[in-house]
Design a protein around this nucleic acid. Sequence first.
DNA 1: TCTTGGGTTAACGGCATGTGAACTGTGGTT
DNA 2: AACCACAGTTCACATGCCGTTAACCCAAGA
Lengths: 225, 225
Amino acid sequence: MGKQSILLVDDEPDILDFIKYNLVKEGYIVHTATNGREGVALAKKVLPDLILLDVMMPEMDGVEACTEIREHKSLRQSIVAFLTARGEDYSQIAGFEAGADDYILKPIKPRVLLSRVQALLRRKKATGYVGGDYDGTGLMIDPDRYVVLHHGKELSLPKKEFELLSLLASQPGRVFSRENILASVWGTDVVVGDRTIDVHIRKLREKLGEQYFRTVKGVGYKFVG
Amino acid sequence: MGKQSILLVDDEPDILDFIKYNLVKEGYIVHTATNGREGVALAKKVLPDLILLDVMMPEMDGVEACTEIREHKSLRQSIVAFLTARGEDYSQIAGFEAGADDYILKPIKPRVLLSRVQALLRRKKATGYVGGDYDGTGLMIDPDRYVVLHHGKELSLPKKEFELLSLLASQPGRVFSRENILASVWGTDVVVGDRTIDVHIRKLREKLGEQYFRTVKGVGYKFVG
DNA sequence: TCTTGGGTTAACGGCATGTGAACTGTGGTT
DNA sequence: AACCACAGTTCACATGCCGTTAACCCAAGA
């Protein structure tokens, strides 16, 4: 699979930069927001693998944000962890009630942060993106080797195609909007033309077969298992 | 939280084994039964987090089983999902009013199964309670996949029809004025002719049946549940 | 009977998507 | 440096679905 994406939400620019620096250095794609509302909005766009939420924030705090995130169907696959200062015990409880998967204590130590993040994402990888497992579709996606097994034949796809396929196939049946796809595969900042996604979809259809990819007009694309 | 438990009820041993294998591999505790009666009995014992019920079974079918389960206070917390074959005769599933939370179409694809199971359990974990997408009419609307399950059959509707249906069905019984509908589905700025809504309603009536949509003359339309 | 509101059908046309080819940049090879 | 292969994007044009409209019908009430 491609890099995994993390959404980092904290109102203090210093902390934001510090954490982002450490995560980027490890090869994660990091999106940032400075308050809960912004964070939730961005999350809906990029569908990150992991969301790190500061608890204390202006506008909308972490717990509220988490609640909203958990109510959003498309974000059910995302893992949520709180960043919480030592001694804010109540926040842990409220946090878990809101549906968080973990919490990480401030002050942040890079080593600790990374190992926790890795652990959380490993857990997701096990069930989330792709199991390297035959699933009856004749398709096997091997994120480690960047290779797709199609009815026993090994296909190596270019990066973008592979990532697009991985995204769609991560939740068969679910429709991904063009916006979602752009944000996940291309990134929020990159701007590409309207037809780019289509062309990549077409290449995948050529290589794997029409039957896997369904167009939902006006909405997006979905992978059918 | 410890491992989550799943009760799997299906009369075909092959399918049972196949699904069990995939769930166990992901770390779930899986109990199995081969007919509805057995399933209900076992459910009362183990109080599983999630119950997967095949619809077609000897002795006691999935719908009956689901009804019994829903009547049992100790099983209120359990999520129930049907396993239903694509295109299964509608009369068999007419009893969908039994209170299921979700449905999963056969043939089962491991990855689809897992992501759905994961989503359902995550939702349970987050809220402790799952309010089904189910509204007691034989209709289930799935905005994630942009499909409607109508008595066991998957229907994919065009965008406008889907949104109109979603709106009306969101509050069964409530009358939506034409003005309401226009504002919600088309947007406040867009101006369309008088007959446009009617035409869409008609298409929905064609596809789903007259009985769901009632005209309230001079006022608007409502969805009847 | 006239009016008002909704139902029905077919046909039109726009727009989202499909498609083939050209263009650009990059990395590797000789 | 010249060349090549390939990924990624864009462009121009084709296509077909979907949304809308228009014209007409029917029913109910004034």
